[in-house]
Write a protein that binds this DNA or RNA. Structure first.
Lengths: 169, 169
DNA sequence: TTTCGTGCAAAGCCTTTGCATCCAT
DNA sequence: ATGGATGCAAAGGCTTTGCACGAAA
């Protein structure tokens, strides 16, 4: 119950009162579930950086650990689901038939520009969008819980014309 | 190689009102492909109403036809892909692990409110959203090609409390 | 002991693909 | 004769699940 085993440095970096692991523990307890060693490892790995990731990449990162703290693929998938329910993660896109996750805790709401060519995800935030959606939802008697906005196109890098391509025939 | 087999009348009407089937034929011809009987059946079935659908539903609708004009599942999937490339369809969401399609030809751009409970899709259009996205994209040197905006939550119907559910212990 | 969790393998599902056959917008 | 297209079945690839064993309270 008590978060006394958490490094203060991490708490500061997340900029929230409760660390992800604590929030997860809290969520689990309300469902009669436990914060097991495996679940802790997964949360730690997931929040070790802010990059987007998919289940398989996470499995790979976990199996690459040299401390022998590995977790099975099944547990990874199951835990990602719980973390999403707990509000720690959210699915932001789908790439190559895989769900892409990102932190949904400790970071402000934002959306993405997705390059159709290289797959790069560029985050952006715009309050006006949220306001508009609130208004639209209200007009339809719809109780908005969240949204997913993906803008497709080509990033600056990929939209730059290249001679090599024009040379082909 | 040359598009000389295209009726001049159709070329002239391109910017105006070309039927989905014609637009598809045109697209196919530019790729050296043919508008076969099966592809025509699929286009006809898809544009027989404006509802959203997924591949399996379309397969079901086609197999339900009494005129013996059936099409295999393979062809349905393959053709949906071509129709998307041709600009006739677009994927708007993903529900129950299936891609949801809708017409992308002859209908104005719009987005959706998606009920997390019953899966209902409510369409809405808002110019401000498009404007904002154009601006955001420009600011990032991103060449926007399109977007996908899904608002999650509960529709008016599903957000209404029901006694019957409370009765269950 | 009892309950919940893990890991493995197998199953599920949607979607794609290899290949022989078919056919003609 | 000639490509492209179809249809069937099998393969793919991500994700879920059944089940026996394991660990913690």
């Amino acid at each position: 119950m008590t978060p006394e085993d958490l490094p203060a440095s991490e708490l500061a970096a997340v900029q929230v009162a409760v660390s992800p692991i604590d929030k997860f523990r809290e969520y689990l307890s309300t469902r009669g579930m436990k914060l097991t060693v495996e679940r802790s490892i997964i949360v730690e790995e997931v929040f070790s950086d802010h990059e987007h990731f998919d289940a398989e990449q996470l499995v790979a990162r976990l199996s690459r650990r040299q401390d022998g703290r590995s977790v099975s693929r099944s547990s990874v998938y199951r835990t990602l689901g719980y973390m999403k329910e707990a509000g720690l993660l959210r699915k932001v896109a789908r790439s190559h038939d895989r769900e892409i996750y990102e932190h949904d805790y400790g970071y402000p709401q934002h959306d993405h520009l997705i390059c159709s060519k290289c797959g790069t995800l560029i985050e952006f935030h715009n309050d006006a969008v949220s306001d508009i959606l609130e208004e639209v939802a209200a007009r339809h008697g719809f109780r908005m819980a969240g949204h997913r906005l993906e803008v497709y196109g080509l990033c600056a890098e990929c939209s730059r014309p290249r001679r090599s391509r024009l040379d082909r025939i």
